[in-house]
């Protein structure tokens, strides 16, 4: 238990340090640039990804092209709207990234990704138990029966799907 206590303390300390750090960013500017980049990329990829077999003007490329043109135009509009706000000092969009929150999200994402990657090697029930225990540990739970409940749920879900619903889980 002493080990767990010291881990807890280290986590608290790191958490405090990270919690104080924030990064400010403009979601509109970044969003606009990202969407612009994606739409240009997909428009360039279109000829190779959609081969035309018909001769009509409205064809398999029409809709995707229309969609990306709209995204392109709107992202440019969004970008300049935001620039105008910044220049005219009319209150630009601003968000804060709290490092602690983001690191936590990253940890959860790593758990989820790991869960996905473990599905085939060790099977659904085993990987669910591993994931469940990791997530419960993430919430810093000390009571052992919480872990048991989560593991039991994992096993129950797996068995019901496999034997009652005839779904071949990995």
């Amino acid at each position: 238990m002493k080990l767990i206590d010291s881990i807890d303390k280290w986590l608290d300390d790191t958490g405090e340090k990270l919690g104080k750090k924030t990064i400010r960013y403009n979601p509109d500017l970044i969003g606009a640039v990202l969407m612009f980049g994606l739409s240009v990329a997909f428009l360039l990829m279109m000829p190779s990804q959609i081969k035309l077999t018909e001769t009509s003007t409205i064809n398999a490329r029409t809709f995707p092209r229309l969609v990306f043109m709209i995204v392109l135009v709107l992202s440019v509009l969004l970008f300049f709207k935001e620039i105008a706000k910044i220049v005219l000092k009319k209150g630009s969009a601003s968000r804060e990234l709290n490092l602690l929150v983001e690191v936590r999200a990253l940890i959860i994402f790593v758990f989820i990704a790991m869960y996905y990657l473990l599905l085939e090697p060790i099977g659904f029930i085993a990987s669910s138990i591993v994931f469940g225990i990791c997530m419960t540990a993430y919430f810093r739970v000390r009571k052992w029966y919480y872990y048991a409940i989560v593991a039991a749920c994992a096993i129950a879900v797996g068995l019901v799907f496999q034997y009652v619903l005839h779904v071949r889980l990995p």
């Binding site: 989820i112 869960y115 469940g132 419960t136 919430f139 749920c153 799907f161």
Partner: peptide, 19 residues
């Protein structure tokens, strides 16, 4: 408790998405 609910939801999601 969220610590139980969250992983259980995820497990259902994975089973459902697979099915």
């Amino acid at each position: 408790p969220i610590s139980i609910l969250t992983p259980v939801i995820a497990i259902f999601c994975f089973a459902g998405a697979f099915s």
